[in-house]
């Protein structure tokens, strides 16, 4: 369960101070599927960084389960990201020089999983997203939808508690978008994940049981 309490995040811009999150208090229960919407510059990115243990708030607390993310050091945060949080990005963010299988394996490297087990789990994960025949393909040899499937396999191969998806369908056509969303929803249901999706697409947002809107650093339920 996520618990954000009076979270404020400010940045020092060139001539002024920017408040990206303004006194946000929010709870997200385990197993929830939450969609976050809002205008560009509204604070979606910053909120996702807080939830993903990528940044710390200027004030307030962020808690994931028993871990107070806002108080932990870099090393501990990296450990939590490695074990508990999976990321899916709009631009897929695959390593261009690694094959699909090796890209998935990168998520297991920080967990100390042995080489053979890494390979087996990576292949299983790729098979679960329908890419059994694409293990040795480089990202450049895959379509956008296939690349996003590899990214989903990479996010899920470590069996995280939380999956954070940043515009996961933003670069895809409608048909592929629906395929990817069905895939994500399938995993969410099967694995009991907490799925948090940032999206501009209302059609995607409507699939979530809970929708949040963030604007000028303020979060409200839709």
């Amino acid at each position: 369960m996520y618990q954000l309490t009076n979270v404020t995040k400010t940045y020092n811009a060139t001539k002024r101070k920017v408040t990206a999150l303004d006194d946000v208090t929010l709870t997200i229960q385990d197993g929830e599927m939450v969609a976050i919407q809002g205008p560009t510059g509204g604070g979606k990115s910053t909120l996702l960084q807080m939830l993903g243990a990528l940044d710390r708030p200027t004030s307030g607390d962020v808690t994931l389960g028993a871990s107070m993310l806002s108080k932990l050091g870099d090393h501990k945060l990296a450990e939590i990201r490695a074990k508990e949080i999976g990321f899916v990005f709009q631009g897929f963010n695959l390593i261009p020089t690694l094959t699909a299988e090796e890209n998935v394996e990168t998520a297991l490297a920080p967990l100390g999983v042995s080489g053979s087990e890494r390979r087996t789990r990576a292949r299983d994960a790729l098979a679960s997203v329908g890419l059994s025949d694409r293990f040795t393909h480089l990202p450049a040899e895959l379509s956008g939808g296939q690349q996003q499937r590899v990214a989903i396999a990479r996010a899920l191969v470590k069996r995280p508690e939380v999956l954070l998806a940043d515009e996961p369908t933003g670069s895809l056509d409608e048909e592929t978008r629906d395929e990817i969303m069905e895939l994500l929803e399938g995993f969410w249901r099967e694995q009991g994940l907490t799925l948090i999706i940032v999206t501009h697409d209302t059609a995607v947002a409507r699939r979530a049981g809970r929708r949040l809107h963030i604007k000028a650093g303020k979060v409200r339920e839709v």
Partner: peptide
């Protein structure tokens, strides 16, 4: 940058 940022996001430590 994006590559290393991604790796950090999925749990790679600075040392790695």
């Amino acid at each position: 940058t994006r590559e290393f940022g991604t790796l950090k996001a999925i749990g790679w430590s600075n040392r790695r």
